[in-house]
């Protein structure tokens, strides 16, 4: 978080710097099955974020000693392109932040993937942030969920993620980069929508119990829209379906 003494005024008359209402999502677009080689993939644009996610597998887990004879393991790699941020070129290769995000993302997917359907195998999830503007881990998870579905992986649910935060006493949804830098709190959250279980929770800053409750409610409300965009992305790939499948 940046020095708050020179914080720009993030909210004016109930509107945010980019003109959004406090509980408004940035525009979200997802396209499924965009890469030829991957078993499943998705491209996502969320505000100024641009994210590519791909899934390979299930395939034989390698090296052999990592194999679990009764279930699949998930490997996940989140990385940010060195050209992804407005401003200077960054170093490529995983840093501590990327390694942590990869881990919590993997765990979010472990909670809904039917790992026992794929003994001794591995499922690889790759998330590439091509352009970043705050909320990239949420964008990565939302894209990867579509990639997982388009790979035909057995899952209990199609998860989504979004963050909420706090500026002064105002709660805001789906923080962009500048809001993320100067907010009093940021809470990326991933949700399994069939029962609203939280499969990823991270938070830093300060929140009262009531603010937490209200923030999560904002997440769940926005989740309906996000889930819909995810489903429509998959529908478009298979659209034109007609009666009679000829099989």
């Amino acid at each position: 978080m940046a020095d708050k003494s020179n914080r720009p005024q993030l909210i004016v008359d109930g509107k945010r710097l980019d003109g959004r209402d406090l509980n408004q999502l940035r525009p979200l677009k997802i396209e499924a099955s965009v890469l030829k080689n991957a078993d499943g993939s998705a491209y996502l644009e969320w505000g100024n974020n641009k994210v590519l996610a791909a899934v390979y597998g299930p395939k034989e887990a390698m090296p052999k000693h990592v194999q679990d004879p009764v279930k699949a393991i998930i490997k996940c790699k989140y990385s940010m392109a060195p050209f992804s941020s407005m401003g200077e070129h960054s170093r490529s290769g995983p840093n501590r932040r990327a390694i942590e995000i990869s881990k919590v993302t993997r765990e979010a997917f472990e909670s809904v993937t039917m790992l026992h359907d794929y003994p001794a195998s591995e499922i690889d999830i790759f998330i590439e942030i091509l352009q970043s503007d705050g909320g990239t881990r949420a964008a990565g998870i939302t894209a990867a969920a579509v990639a997982m579905a388009s790979a035909g992986i057995h899952m209990k649910d199609l998860i989504y993620a979004v963050s909420f935060g706090k500026v002064g006493e105002d709660l805001i949804l789906d923080l962009n980069m500048i809001e993320d830098n100067y907010s009093d709190c940021d809470m990326p959250t991933a949700v399994s929508p069939r029962n609203n279980d939280l499969v990823l929770v991270q938070m830093d800053g300060s929140l009262t119990r009531e603010q937490l409750h209200k923030g999560l409610q904002m997440v769940l409300d926005a989740g309906k829209t996000i889930s819909q965009v995810q489903k429509e992305a998959l529908q478009r790939v298979y659209e034109g379906r007609e009666n009679g499948n000829g099989v």
Partner: peptide, 15 residues
């Protein structure tokens, strides 16, 4: 100039 053979580009490309 740098290049990345991203693991999402082919099953044989390793991180």
């Amino acid at each position: 100039v740098s290049s990345e053979l991203l693991p999402l580009a082919h099953a044989d490309f390793e991180p």
